[in-house]
Nucleic acid binder design. Structure first.
Lengths: 134, 134
DNA sequence: GTCTTGATTTAGCCAAGGCTAAATTGATAC
DNA sequence: GTATCAATTTAGCCTTGGCTAAATCAAGAC
């Protein structure tokens, strides 16, 4: 058997993107639902402290995904918006795919949250086709 | 819309288990394939340094999943063996499920590696049923 | 028995994502 | 205009999982 680090290397890279994707998605949801996105509300929804959220937001600002002034609400940059839209789309495909398969609502929600970041474009297309036909 | 930290909290807990599961699976594979499991070979297969692997092994020893004496090969405790067997089983179900769906070999391998840790027992049973019938 | 060599371990660094406590600020009430 | 209060930020700590360089050890060569 040959040695295959590739899949594990990819896995580590995926992990590094997960937080960013979850956060931009959340910010987009809040902008839509509440009209604005604030650190405290994000923290509450993720179940972490506001400090943790704040630090992650700082990183996302450095990565030009999030835009904001000190002590003010958060916005997405065009880059952040694009990521949010793509993430949400992928999330929905995974979630609907699981439900179509017969996974109960709540379980589908929880599992989709974990699975979505590890579904490659190829697999996603297959999930989508399955939903449309199956 | 209500606030739901639960799914994200579960996600963080899942992450904390991932490394342990990947490592006990790998150790089991090496014991079977090579007769013994050594730090260097594990590191090579995961694509990380031997030092990183060593530190993770130390943690797994503290958690009573791995057993070994300094400078010697690694073994699984009964607890570690049990985890390895369950992980491998779940991994195989996810992998075969993806292939059954039509995902190509290599993609199925990569995606399964990321997805497996986020598939709940309920969803896993549905995957399994789909394979047996579908 | 000693030497060499490759494997393992230790030391010490970094980033990410957790936390609490304390300081700062914005906005609202008065 | 000032005081208050909640939200935000800073400071400082922890763990995990990365790394390189250096020290230690086991095992085979001689």
């Amino acid at each position: 058997m040959s040695v295959k680090p590739l899949k594990f290397v990819k896995l580590r890279h995926a992990h590094h993107q997960e937080t960013a994707q979850d956060y931009v998605e959340m910010i987009q949801d809040l902008l839509k639902e509440e009209g604005e996105a604030r650190v405290t509300e994000i923290a509450k929804r993720f179940g972490v402290s506001a400090v943790t959220t704040h630090k992650i937001i700082l990183r996302l600002q450095k990565e030009k995904l999030v835009d904001s002034k000190p002590y003010r609400a958060l916005f997405l940059t065009p880059k952040g918006k694009k990521m949010a839209i793509q993430s949400k789309k992928r999330h929905n495909v995974v979630y609907r795919f699981l439900k179509k398969l017969g996974v109960p609502e709540k379980t589908a929600q929880i599992d989709a949250e974990g699975i979505e970041h590890h579904v490659s474009p190829k697999t996603l297309r297959i999930f989508q086709k399955f939903m449309e036909q199956g």
